[in-house]
Amino acid sequence: MSARVDRIVTSGVFALDGGEWEVDNNVWIVGDDSECLVIDAPHEADAIAAAVGGRTVTAIACTHAHNDHINAAVELASYVGAPILLNPADQVLWEQVYGSRPPDGTLEDGQELRVAGVSLQVLATPGHAPGAVCFYAPELGALFSGDTLFSGGPGATGRSYSDFPTIISSIRERLLSLPPETVVYTGHGDTTTIGDEAPHLQEWIDRGH
């Protein structure tokens, strides 16, 4: 069976800089009936494991290390026996959740993850977090953008370890050059496409979003 993209939504608390916010997170599961890759592991390990079912999980790939994207990762890994992968530039955020317990492997720009016959290319897209990455699956016409790009604009950059000019550069240089029909599977909220977001880059810059 060919690879597909499944979504579940988990709910919990995003905590940073002394503040807490209730959030709903998208969890993307890429694979077929026998194996899959989990993108982000927020809040509810049991729910994610249930969505995986009996499939082999090749990896838990984290778009970044804000707590609301990784706080179920270690528990999920213990359930499914998969390595947790993270860009090392987000180690400072990882340690806020897990202390000295390291991720199991790294995600580097240009790295390729393969699952169910398709390739996911790792694109380094710092800005929302220093180690933020996106995953581009050309065979699926899909980009998994984490909190770098949403329907309506870039991810937030008003908190520690984030930077607005950097996220704008990441989006301009790494994402908007992808085919316009590419579906963007975001970390929160609705999907969009590269073609829908590309025309608004200057608007985002002008309002310092």
Rank of each mutant, 00 (worst) to 15 (best):
D206Q: 10
P199R: 08
A61G: 06
G158L: 02
L76G: 12
R7S: 11
I70C: 06
S119N: 12
V122R: 06
L140V: 12
V57S: 05
L76V: 07
L107R: 01
P103D: 05
P165T: 10
R114V: 14
T182Q: 03
A65K: 05
H66S: 04
F164C: 08
T58P: 00
Y136A: 11
H43R: 05
G153K: 00
I70L: 13
L178D: 00
G195Y: 11
G155T: 01
G99D: 11
V5Q: 01
V92M: 06
V115A: 14
P83T: 05
V30M: 07
E95M: 12
M1P: 14
N26G: 01
P154W: 00
M1Q: 08
D90Q: 04
G81P: 10
S160A: 15
E108D: 13
A137Q: 11
I60C: 05
R174G: 09
P179W: 00
S34C: 05
V13A: 09
E173K: 04
G208M: 12
V27D: 03
T56C: 02
D190Y: 02
D17Y: 04
P179T: 01
G141Q: 12
C36K: 07
G81Q: 08
T58A: 09
D163R: 04
F14P: 00
A50P: 00
A65C: 15
T191A: 15
I8E: 03
A137H: 11
C134S: 15
P88V: 04
T56F: 08
P103M: 09
G110E: 06
L16K: 08
N71R: 10
